[in-house]
Nucleic acid binder design. Structure first.
Lengths: 255, 255
DNA sequence: ATCGAGAGATAACATGGGTTATTCAAGGTA
DNA sequence: TACCTTGAATAACCCATGTTATCTCTCGAT
């Protein structure tokens, strides 16, 4: 077990799928000039707020949740270190979810207008940010497809693999036993089932030798079978940019 | 009944939430220079294809669907006239869904690199395109939240309202009785239920005076109650741009 | 008109997951 | 240490939805 959660910045994230020029790195670094510690449970924004500030998440986990009048809420996003938070709602007149820290951590807030500067000064960085936003959407779309077609066990398998591969992407040291600050009830809010059924299903999955979730972490016991029952697509490919665009962006560079 | 589906172009769509300069309109018009008729059932792209071409949909409906080895597929997007198709996967190395015409119609294909030109020449249009992409994602996120928390009846209510408001946005003439080229099985693939249960539930909803779906169209019988049971958010607000950004973009203009 | 294929309706039955309640375990606090 | 709060496990029961199988209707093709 034991992941060493060193800090991850947005640059680390974007560099995964795109080469950045020095100018671009400099522009990005400006966004992350004001790291700010945040505590577990702290709210970064609430539904109905006008989006004014974007955040990069350097350390810790956060989630976004849609709260319904009828009491309970549904979780939409899980944000991990390196993620850019708020890009989806940047152009909307109001947020529709609350965003709350799941752990203590460090975020870098910056004003939304700053992105307009980037749009003006760097087409390649514009593309990189669009690519980051698209990848967040892909995660949600895959979760939707997964939920549309699978039962409780496969939903959990899929989501655990989502976390595993996303974490490994930004932190090579992540092991098959990794720390996860999510409760069973959070799983329920993410996957559309009650916490009672999450508990039942986790028990079943452990007895089947698939995975083990404790209060603080998750152990993947049988990666092969989890991939199989969830039909998870490891999306290694997602870490590459569309080659057509690469060619257009860097006409001189080799493919 | 009787909607008169005149053609809708991307400009009509983007203008809904953002003022466009003459230069911007000119750039957009260039994208739509090559209208091309397409027939019902025609495939625009398939999963695994490398994204090279984007399409604007000027007339007709299309859908994107994730096909699983195990036979059936799940529908992710419904595209309506005025929509930009392919923006989500623009930066990805491969498509993950098929896109197929639900009706005959007209599309305007243009090469993906063309968007890079736009990123270079017009920050405001860049923002508009980002806004359009974000709005498509909002639609999917709302559908996910809806599916996470609601039963079959509310899922159908929510989806019908989604269609109703999206259609009305681009075509004022849309009435509470509007044409919908979707089968009951399509509803199932969109909402995560079997066509048998869709049929049962539609029957129930008709007998409750909520709505009536025939082979070709849908009649909304009780808008109020549909809004209530689905907790649908009419997202009129979505047609406005974030005022913070508007102020930054057009510092001289009045709010 | 006739025919056939695909869409929708319906019914009987099976089951996954929701509901409610209770007990148990763990961690934080005085 | 003892206490208290919160999360997890478990059980009994019930209902919404899935499954399978006909049957009927509509519409397009000949």
């Amino acid at each position: 077990m034991a992941t060493a959660p060193q800090e991850v910045c947005l640059t680390d994230n974007l560099m995964h799928f795109m080469a950045l020029s020095d100018t671009d790195m400099h522009l990005l670094a400006e966004l992350e000039q004001t790291p700010q510690p945040v505590s577990r449970g702290q709210t970064l924004w609430k539904a109905e707020d006008v989006p004014r500030t974007l955040y990069t998440l350097r350390r810790g986990w956060a989630y976004s949740m849609h709260r319904s009048e009828s009491g309970e809420g549904q979780v939409l996003d899980i944000f991990l270190p390196g993620d850019l938070m708020g890009i989806r709602e940047l152009t909307l007149p109001a947020h529709s979810t609350d965003v709350v820290m799941l752990t203590s951590g460090v975020v870098c807030p910056f004003p939304a207008e700053r992105l307009l500067d980037i749009f003006q000064h760097s087409p390649s960085l514009t593309l990189a940010i669009h690519a980051a936003a698209a990848r967040q959407q892909v995660i949600i779309s895959k979760r939707l497809v997964n939920i549309l077609r699978h039962d409780a066990r496969a939903r959990i398998a899929h989501f655990v693999l989502e976390l595993y591969y996303r974490l490994k992407r930004v932190d090579e040291s992540v092991h098959r036993d990794f720390s996860v600050p999510l409760l069973q009830s959070d799983f329920g809010k993410l996957l559309g089932m009650t916490k009672v059924h999450v508990s039942r299903t986790l028990g079943e999955m452990e007895s089947q030798g698939l995975l083990r979730k404790t209060r603080k972490d998750i152990q993947i016991l049988d990666l092969e079978r989890l991939l199989e029952i969830s039909a998870f697509d490891p999306m290694k490919l997602t870490d590459q940019l569309n080659p057509t665009l690469t060619a257009a962006l860097f006409p001189s560079a080799p493919t």
